[in-house]
């Protein structure tokens, strides 16, 4: 793991400083950089040279308790096309961590690697490892089913199952063999309250989940994901198919979940990342570029690539 050893600097760069940094054509020396930006290293140049890119990871993360830790993780599609390059990062407990980056940078792939959903795709190969509260995720004798039961996942497009609202919510308990009505009802109510859907559906729990609106369906999926009290909640662009009102509801919900749940969210929308997350990781070209507290990353990024991305110069 590559950790930045430089001290924190909270000076917010002015617009002029930002643009001058971005416009610098020559790889500038450290002294000529604006105050916020520490290193003017380009991922592109590392890609060209074929050397591993050392990610810029802020010091704040050192003090957090880790739930999921990713260690030198690489992933290949069709056994040869490398989609993730030696990624190492820790997801802190009880916080919302956002993964941002341009399309195709591997953020969804990384998220889906956490609960091993990529296993379902033929020809995927991984190296390195991940740990969920210290237990290895990628190891020979891991029971993937048991592992997935410890996590919840919400997808880009809401995917309610063809059953009643109630059965949708308690699905993960049912498949675990839980049939006691009282337990199921308790879990259902708790999860639906947790996903702020209870008041809207409490009178029609036995009607089909497919009759709900898009936003309600997505909140139902969140309820389903938190029903089994997961150790980490994975969200893969949960609002990208929703209208602004439904989006704001989901965002409020994520804010409420903070503290009780560890959330790892992939988003395309940088405003969203800024609004809901405590920490943000920026990924580019299959590499982790910079990872730090959201406020710092958006206002005072350490790397020029990060700054270019969040100011909209590419991606």
């Amino acid at each position: 793991m590559s950790m930045s050893t430089s001290p924190r600097n909270m000076v917010i760069p002015s617009a002029h400083e930002l643009s001058s940094a971005a416009n610098a054509k020559q790889p500038a020396t450290e002294s000529s950089l604006p105050p916020g930006v520490r290193r003017d290293v380009s991922v592109q140049s590392f890609v060209k040279e074929g050397t591993p890119f050392p990610a810029e990871i802020h010091d704040e993360l050192k003090t957090e308790t880790t739930v999921v830790s990713v260690e030198d993780f690489s992933l290949y599609y069709n056994l040869t096309a490398k989609a993730l390059h030696n990624i190492s990062l820790n997801i802190p407990h009880g916080k919302v961590t956002a993964l941002i980056g341009p399309s195709g940078c591997g953020k969804s792939t990384l998220l889906r690697s956490v609960n091993r959903l990529n296993d379902l795709i033929d020809g995927v190969k991984m190296t390195g490892n991940m740990y969920l509260n210290g237990d290895p995720i990628y190891a020979k004798n891991v029971d993937v089913i048991e592992l997935r039961k410890r996590m919840g996942m919400v997808f880009q497009k809401s995917n309610p199952f063809p059953m009643s609202i109630f059965e949708n919510v308690v699905f993960s308990l049912r498949i675990d063999g839980e049939n006691r009505r009282s337990v199921l009802e308790e879990a259902c109510e708790r999860s639906l309250k947790g996903s702020a859907l209870w008041n809207e559906v409490k009178d029609r729990l036995s009607s089909s989940a497919l009759g709900l609106s898009g936003g309600q369906q997505q909140r139902l999926c969140i309820a389903r994901a938190i029903a089994a009290e997961p150790e980490v909640l994975l969200m893969d662009e949960p609002c990208s198919a929703l209208d602004p009102i439904a989006t704001s509801k989901i965002e409020d919900l994520i804010t409420q979940l903070r503290g009780n749940y560890t959330v790892l969210i992939v988003t395309h929308n940088m405003q969203q990342a800024a609004r809901v997350s405590d920490y943000t990781a920026f990924m580019y070209l299959g590499r982790l570029v910079e990872y730090g507290p959201t406020s710092t990353l958006f206002t005072n990024p350490h790397l020029k690539d990060t700054e270019d991305y969040i100011t909209g110069r590419f991606g």
């Binding site: 609960n115 959903l117 379902l120 089913i145 048991e146 592992l147 997935r148 039961k149 996590m151 919840g152 996942m153 997808f155 880009q156 497009k157 995917n159 199952f161 063809p162 059953m163 699905f171 993960s172 049912r174 498949i175 675990d176 999926c221 389903r224 994901a225 089994a228 994975l234």
Partner: peptide
């Protein structure tokens, strides 16, 4: 997406198929 949703809940292949 529906299948993946089921797998993500910790369902086995057969549970996913059957339910």
């Amino acid at each position: 997406s529906v299948r993946e949703g089921s797998y993500a809940c910790g369902a086995s292949k057969w549970q996913t198929i059957r339910r």
